[in-house]
Simulated assay, not measured.
Amino acid sequence: MVKNNLGIFILCIAFSAKSQTNFQLNYNSTFSGRNILFSSSKDINTKYEIGAGLRINIHNINGKLAHPDDQFNTYKKRLFMTQPINYFGISGFVNRQIFSNSKTIKPYIFYDLQATYSGTRNRFFLPYDVALDGTILYKEHIQFWGPFTWVEQNIGFGFKANLFDNLYLNQRMGLGSAFILGYEKQLLDKYFNWFAWNFSTLFTIGLEYRLGSKTE
Rank of each mutant, 00 (worst) to 15 (best):
D69V: 05
I61T: 04
I56H: 02
K47H: 04
F31K: 02
K42Q: 15
R96V: 09
G92Y: 01
R96G: 07
G92H: 01
I44N: 03
V94H: 11
Y75M: 09
N57F: 04
I85R: 13
G63K: 04
T30Y: 02
S40Q: 15
G89W: 06
S32N: 11
S41W: 09
S39C: 08
H67Y: 15
G33A: 04
S32G: 11
G92S: 06
I44H: 01
H59D: 06
R78T: 05
I85L: 14
F31Y: 04
S39E: 04
L54K: 01
I58W: 10
S100R: 04
N73E: 09
F93W: 06
N57M: 08
P68N: 12
G53H: 09
F93Q: 03
H67E: 13
K77T: 07
I58H: 08
K47Y: 00
I50A: 11
L79G: 02
Y48S: 11
A66H: 14
K47L: 00
N28R: 04
F99N: 13
F99A: 15
D69N: 14
F93K: 05
G33E: 07
F88W: 01
D43P: 02
I90E: 03
I36C: 03
N60R: 09
N73W: 05
L37K: 03
R55L: 13
A52G: 10
M81N: 14
F38P: 13
G89T: 07
N101S: 12
Y27V: 14
L37V: 10
N28I: 07
I36A: 05
S32P: 08
N101M: 12
I56K: 01
K47N: 03
Y27N: 14
L54N: 02
I61Q: 09
G63W: 09
K77N: 12
Y48F: 12
S100F: 01
G51F: 02
N45S: 01
N73K: 07
L37T: 10
R34M: 13
Q71V: 11
G63R: 06
G53V: 12
D70L: 11
A52E: 08
R55D: 09
K42F: 14
I36F: 08
R55K: 11
N101T: 13
Y87H: 06
N45M: 01
N60Q: 11
I44Q: 03
Q83T: 08
F93H: 07
K47V: 00
R34I: 08
N28F: 06
T30L: 03
M81H: 11
N35K: 04
R96M: 09
S39H: 05
N62D: 15
G51K: 03
A66E: 14
F38R: 05
Y87L: 05
Q97K: 15
H67A: 11
G63V: 06
Y75F: 14
N62K: 03
K77Q: 10
M81P: 11
L54A: 03
K42P: 11
S102F: 13
Y75P: 02
N57V: 03
S100L: 03
F88C: 00
G53F: 12
L65Y: 15
D43C: 00
I44T: 05
N62S: 10
I98D: 02
S100T: 02
A52R: 06
I44P: 00
D69W: 15
S91Q: 10
S29M: 10
F99H: 15
Q71Y: 14
P84K: 08
F31P: 01
R55P: 07
R78D: 05
F88T: 01
R96K: 13
L37A: 09
S40I: 13
G33V: 06
D70R: 10
I44W: 04
P84Y: 07
